[in-house]
Design a protein around this nucleic acid. Structure first.
Lengths: 131, 131
DNA sequence: ATCTTTGCAAAACCTTTGCACTGCG
DNA sequence: CGCAGTGCAAAGGTTTTGCAAAGAT
């Protein structure tokens, strides 16, 4: 049984931030966005809500090498899996999802004692324009 | 020309720590190991030396999603290939370098406002035997 | 003697926690 | 009301920086 959650302005604003941007957000990004709606929102509240939403499996963690964790609303389990390619804009430090069908990864011969379970592709570059 | 570096006990102990373990180390691990040789070694000195060694390309950064940065002695200073694929054994948590020639990554069409600089491929799986 | 390097402490970050207060149910 | 949730400030944890002193060349 999941524990009772109350509908607060803060929680609503935080969810809205995730839903409206469509890309993984870090706690500070969430704070900035949600603060527009709830001015005195505290960063601790953001952290606590992210933690709760992770426990509820409403969010998933998006980790990139050398980067602090970001979070994103969990999709329908079929629509996206953990090997979705990611694009990190090195200018804005924003992360975007890349259409997996645009990426082809081929693995030839690895040493026979290596068995691959899954893989991850991360693109680094720059995004122009785009608010 | 590279800037002049002095041979200090601290720097020597830090290099030795990397060379003797043969695996990527984090700053705290380096401190613990090198402190055996230089008791009053400070963590700031470790950070500064790692930074210097990175600039000298004596070390390279090994970053994996969701894990703190570790550092590893660079074998070949001429091949500064930051997109070498990595294999993470999920059983031993060890990282191996994968021969890039065994990996082929093709990127079809991205949104026109995304320009890719470089990419990273991480394979997750298991390695058997191979101490 | 010069000038890099060090140790220490403080600062700068990021994330978590304690606590009294707010406000949902 | 009762108690989950919040804001604030303080506390941890990690990495960086300022500065006087140590030490390599």
């Amino acid at each position: 049984m999941s524990k009772s959650l109350r509908a607060t302005r803060q929680r609503h604003a935080i969810k809205k931030a995730f839903e409206q941007t469509g890309r993984p957000l870090g706690p500070k990004e969430v704070l900035d966005l949600a603060s527009q709606e709830v001015p005195n929102l505290g960063i601790a509240t953001v952290y606590r809500n992210i933690k709760t939403m992770l426990e509820q499996e409403e969010l998933e963690t998006i980790d990139l090498p050398g980067q602090p964790s970001r979070y994103f609303p969990k999709q329908d389990k079929t629509s996206r899996n953990r090997s979705t390619p990611l694009f990190l804009c090195q200018k804005t430090n924003r992360v975007y999802f890349v259409d997996p069908s645009e990426i082809e990864l081929q693995i030839a011969r690895l040493p026979s004692n290596f068995v691959v379970d899954h893989s991850e592709v991360i693109l680094y570059g720059e995004c122009t324009s785009n608010n």
